[in-house]
Simulated assay, not measured.
Amino acid sequence: MQYKKLGNTDLQTAPIVFGGNVFGWTLNEKKSFKMLDELFEKGFTTIDTADVYSRWAEGNKGGESERIIGKWMKERGVRDKINLATKVGSSMQQGGDKDISRSHILKASEDSLKRLQTDYIDLYYTHWDDNKTPVEETLETYQQLINEGKVRYIGASNLSPERLQTSLDAAKRSSLPKYEVFQPEYSLVERAKFEGKIRDICQQNNLSVLSYFSLASGFLTGKYQDKEDIHGKERAMFLKDYFSDRGKNILKAIHDVSNEYMVSEAAIALAWLMQRPGITAPIASATKKSHLKSFFQAIDIDLSKEHMQQLNEASAY
């Protein structure tokens, strides 16, 4: 498996990053450990999580994903073999305010380190922008954490083009840490948030791009064909808006292309991302060992120009 370098760092990732939002949500601790064991064995050693995962699950308070990952790393003794990414900026309270102030980052980072049972975070993301904290304050706080050995590199997610560019300019002007990775929502059903200004900024500044919701919460696997299929499902809140005419056209295109290559629809959706301009690697989750087959299928596929065009046209916006 060919690994990819992340920005101007010494971090490398498999062509697909595993999304840890399922740990403590759709996977309990026991099943999470089995999945993590399987991922590690197969060489998927970059794990993406956040302090608030899996807050939205009934009975959860946030931090569940980090706790499970931390316990697994400690029990298996594999911390030094894992590229660990987590995030700061969201509130542990549903509907709470975003916060990337110095005080919040310092407290949240300590809380994450305790849950993860580690001394350092390989890649620490600004999860959401609060659109009020001066970017210099945020970057200076990251500098402190880097100086203390608690964070190695930083990334950003969900920033506007303006705030991302302002942050990059401030880093250069004041010799502060630079975002090395950007994490946008990007998939066949959600293209507009990344394509355009954000992609241009990332390419111009050598930011690696790891897309989240790469399978649109399972919609692009072909598992759900209409709204009736998601009734009562944990992911219903994320899926409910996808069942438009455009969404159905995308599903048909993926289905047709997957038949051509004799692979899963999830593999086609991931392969499309891996071949899109500016994308370093998609982030994807799985809840069963059998789902990982799609990861390897996607890595092995080289979609033709004609099939890429077919998918591009079906997902045009």
Rank of each mutant, 00 (worst) to 15 (best):
Q204P: 03
M274I: 02
A267S: 11
L292H: 05
Q275H: 13
E228T: 14
F238L: 10
R235E: 15
A271E: 05
S264E: 07
G232M: 04
G278E: 12
Y242D: 14
D256N: 15
N206K: 12
E260K: 14
N206P: 00
F295Y: 15
P277G: 02
E228Y: 08
G218I: 14
G218W: 12
S211P: 05
M274V: 02
A269N: 09
K293R: 12
D256Q: 13
N205T: 01
N205W: 04
S217N: 13
I250V: 14
G278L: 02
F219A: 08
R246Q: 13
A298S: 07
N205Y: 01
H255F: 07
N259M: 08
K227M: 14
K240L: 08
M237Y: 08
D245W: 01
V257K: 03
F213Y: 15
L239T: 09
R235P: 00
A266Q: 07
K197G: 00
L210K: 09
S285Y: 15
I201L: 06
E234I: 13
S290I: 07
K289G: 06
L270M: 08
F243E: 02
I198D: 01
K223L: 10
P277L: 06
L292Y: 04
K248Q: 12
Y224Q: 05
K223T: 12
F295L: 06
D226E: 07
S211I: 05
G218D: 11
Q203R: 10
K197C: 00
A271P: 08
S290V: 12
L210A: 11
E265W: 00
A281C: 02
I201K: 02
F238Y: 08
V263L: 05
L210T: 11
D256Y: 06
R246T: 14
S285A: 15
G247W: 01
A298P: 05
K223M: 06
S244L: 02
A253H: 00
W272K: 10
I268Q: 02
D226W: 11
A216Q: 02
D256K: 11
L220Y: 05
A271H: 05
N206S: 13
K289M: 12
D200L: 02
S258P: 10
G218V: 14
H231K: 15
T287N: 10
D256H: 12
H255W: 03
N249A: 10
I254Q: 05
L239Q: 01
I198Q: 04
Y212Q: 01
L215S: 05
M237F: 10
G222F: 10
M237I: 11
S214M: 12
W272E: 04
I279H: 00
E265C: 06
C202A: 10
C202M: 07
M274C: 11
A216H: 03
F219L: 09
I279A: 05
K223Y: 13
L292F: 09
R246Y: 01
K248R: 11
L215A: 03
C202E: 06
A284R: 05
I283R: 04
K248G: 03
D241G: 08
G232W: 09
L270K: 01
N249F: 00
M237G: 13
A216C: 04
R235T: 12
N205L: 01
Q275K: 11
N206F: 13
S211H: 04
L292I: 14
I230V: 07
A266E: 12
R235C: 08
L273H: 06
P277R: 15
S290T: 14
F238H: 07
W272R: 05
I283A: 03
A236P: 09
I299L: 02
H255E: 14
L251Y: 11
D229W: 02
